[in-house]
Simulated assay, not measured.
Amino acid sequence: MSTSTPTNKTVGQSDQRISAKRKIKRNKVLTYAAFVGPALLFFLVIQIIPFFMGIYYSFTSWNGVSSAVEWVGLDNYKRIFTNDQRFFDSFWFTTRFMFAAVIISNLIGFSLALLLNAALKTRNILRTVFFIPNVIGGLLLGFIWQFIFVRGFAAVGELTNIGFFQLPWLGDATTAFWGIVIVFAWQISGYMMVIYIAALQGVDTSLLEAAKIDGANAWQTLRRIIIPLILPAFTICFFLTIAMAFKIFDLNLSLTGGGPFNSTQSVAINIYQEAFTNNNYGVGSAKAIIFFVVVAIFTTVQVMITKNKEVEA
């Protein structure tokens, strides 16, 4: 009897410790669920479930209104690839726009970051000024710039006779294309600037001082030291601008509406018109799935290439 009592007490203490550990683990799980659960629920409801519903509707002939949903298999995709030249025209416009917008936006954003990373007294004010266009909604921004292109530039052109301001900015396919690029770059460059500034502030100043002592000029320092060290920022900015440029909708809609003669119609506007104007929700969903695959390929390839450059650097 005397030997069994300590054993029972030890077993009891061990059970209590196991129970306490389980309680702590359960509390951690509940804490994580309380923080992550609502976000995960909203993500499922707003993103994942509609995405899979879109995949399903892309194989149907649903008009978006009727309760009758007819399964048509791959007919929608066949129709797109064989009898929808406007969709591919909009894809060509969006791809050209993406390349131009990504290059210009990042050049401007990086240049502003280099400028405002210097010891300027007004740099905080200038950062705010350059970032403000990013907080303006695309629809409002489009209408503002539409007035500038149509009325403002025309008035300046009449006063100065400068050819640049006398161009039919939104009335010609070429100038309308560059007009959208200009407005997009003006809106998004401030956002890219903030990311580049954060990366530049993480560069070790001792490296820059050592390069200066060794006789490196400003261009050599930028090319050989600064850019390799902030390549992760380029990866992020390229990814964001590619995705934003591909998905352009509100700015394009309010600025040109896809005109003139659908020459500046983005893929997003084409999908919107197909689904909600023509009431071909099944075809519109199929176009959206194709669009998703193309954007995913572009962004994945871009991230892979820039990540490899980071490793090499």
Rank of each mutant, 00 (worst) to 15 (best):
N270R: 00
N217I: 11
A296L: 14
T277E: 10
T241M: 06
S263M: 07
L229S: 14
I230R: 03
V295A: 06
A268W: 00
A233R: 04
A268Q: 03
Q273S: 08
T264H: 09
S285H: 11
F234R: 05
A245H: 04
N279A: 12
W219I: 14
R224L: 14
A288H: 02
F291G: 02
A233F: 07
P260A: 14
G257L: 08
F246R: 01
P260T: 13
F292N: 13
C237T: 15
R223W: 15
Q273I: 01
L253Q: 14
N280C: 06
D250M: 05
F261Q: 11
E274R: 07
P232V: 12
S263F: 11
F238Y: 14
N252Y: 07
I227M: 11
F292M: 11
A268Y: 00
A286F: 02
F291N: 07
F276C: 10
Y272T: 00
A243Q: 11
I289L: 09
A296D: 09
G282K: 02
S263R: 12
L222H: 11
A288W: 01
K287P: 06
N262S: 10
N278K: 10
A275P: 02
Q265E: 15
G257E: 04
I225R: 07
I269Y: 04
I290W: 03
G282I: 01
G282C: 03
I225M: 12
F239H: 10
L229I: 09
